[in-house]
Design a protein around this nucleic acid. Structure first.
Length: 187
DNA sequence: CCCTGATTCGC
DNA sequence: GCGAATCAGG
């Protein structure tokens, strides 16, 4: 396949719309996402001007970037500092459950007031939760704690996490509320 | 693991 | 000019 005007145009269009390279490649057919990215670069529109779009893995690299130069076989045997797997701070949501009654609760930002939908979603997925122990958590398992840590009935969600996030899709929903839960609250 | 774009370099 | 292989990161 070659880059006909039409194909290039579609490429530009989709790229402009914020479509990912893989999506564009899929749409065009006959090319890989690498081909698309390569073309995008050659066309000089590597930087999606203005369009915020879904920034999957793009992190506006700084111009001058260190490059390995000869990418032969030099690299590959680096020490690589593995992420020592953090315990991850407990979400404030279930705090109430793990704090003995009678103790004053620390001021919680917005422990309450979470999208009912998000909560419902959580309740649903928690049924499917893998109920992992702390040791079983990995970089891609939801680290949302459930239950009382001082109890055998304590586990972590363990469902697949959302890329880059510490929690699964549902828990991300209640963990990161985009400021402004209630839009229009009739009172 | 999935995914993203960025870069290099032989073709 | 092209794009696979690789890098770098969420």
């Amino acid at each position: 396949m070659s880059w006909s005007d039409e194909r290039v145009e579609l490429l530009k269009k989709m790229w402009g719309e914020g479509q990912s390279a893989s999506q564009i490649a899929k749409e065009l057919g006959g090319v890989t996402r690498n081909a698309v990215i390569g073309k995008v670069h050659r066309l000089g529109l590597s930087n999606r001007s203005g369009a915020g779009a879904s920034d999957g893995g793009a992190k506006s690299k700084t111009s001058a970037k260190a490059k390995p130069a000869a990418r032969a076989k030099t690299a590959k045997s680096e020490p690589k500092t593995e992420t020592p797997k953090e315990p991850a701070a407990a979400p404030v949501s279930r705090v109430k459950a793990i704090i003995p009654a009678g103790q004053p609760l620390p001021p919680q930002p917005s422990a309450n007031e979470i999208d009912p939908e998000a909560l419902a979603k959580v309740n649903e997925i928690e049924k499917k939760a893998k109920k992992l122990s702390l040791m079983e958590l990995t970089e891609r398992t939801c680290k949302w704690p459930v239950g009382d840590p001082a109890t055998p009935d304590f586990w972590f969600c363990g469902l697949p996490v959302q890329a880059g996030k510490p929690y699964c899709d549902a828990h991300v929903g209640v963990a990161f509320q985009p400021m402004s839960s209630r839009r229009d609250r009739r009172r």
